[in-house]
Amino acid sequence: MSGHTDMVLVDKKGMRIDGRKTDEHRPVHIEAGVLSNADGSAYLEIGKNKVLAAVYGPRECHPRHLQDPTKAIIQCKYNMQAFSVSDRKRPGPDRRSIEISKIIAEALEKVVLTELYPRASIDVYIEILQANAGTRCAGLTAASVALADAGIPMRDIVPAIAAGKADGHVLLDLNKEEDNFGQADVPLAIVPSTDEIVLLQMDGNMTRKEFDKAMDMAFSACHEVYEIQKAALKERYAIAKGDEDNE
């Protein structure tokens, strides 16, 4: 966020270095049900980010002292693989990944009907295979598809995307250069059916006007991502329907 560059991140026509307009997100591709052991899973690409999410549960909660007699708890582990970033990342959790895991679990808690499974745990694992800014949003977006794929009762599916500021422009879905040399980053996740905010962070420097614009962009992009999430799930379960037509 604090880096400086001579690179022009947004040109005079409002075009970004990867050819996007200011309010355009990178291409999103989601595939549901990609792993066999996990109860639910999803693979997601947004631009150059590549993310796998897996869900196990509801299952017995370990460690036991975390059990809640009234509802299931959601435990999330967000992990960046060693080769996912330009400098090799040392394996194992660091403070950043622990914080991200916590806020993702909390965002999912809002939509999962945890009260149906007292004492149980729903475990969400997010592996970042390749990182290019926006991995927490990519991870959360993939994780909610994996949760639905696991057949877990939930009110809605959570999409997430970041907005921010670079070269003085409010931009949607910052890429790595815009994130490194930009002035602000605001990851957002919502419950689309109610437009409630379940994840929000901000760092950098923005005016109220800029922030409101960023929110408008992120909200509308979340709804677009939501449609891609739903399509991925419907495609996975449409295979059975295909059989029906063929037989």
Binding site: K48, K50, F83, S84, L129, Q130
Partner: peptide, 8 residues
């Protein structure tokens, strides 16, 4: 499959 790696 992973461009951020030098081989994958």
């Amino acid at each position: 499959c992973v461009e951020s790696a030098d081989g994958s």
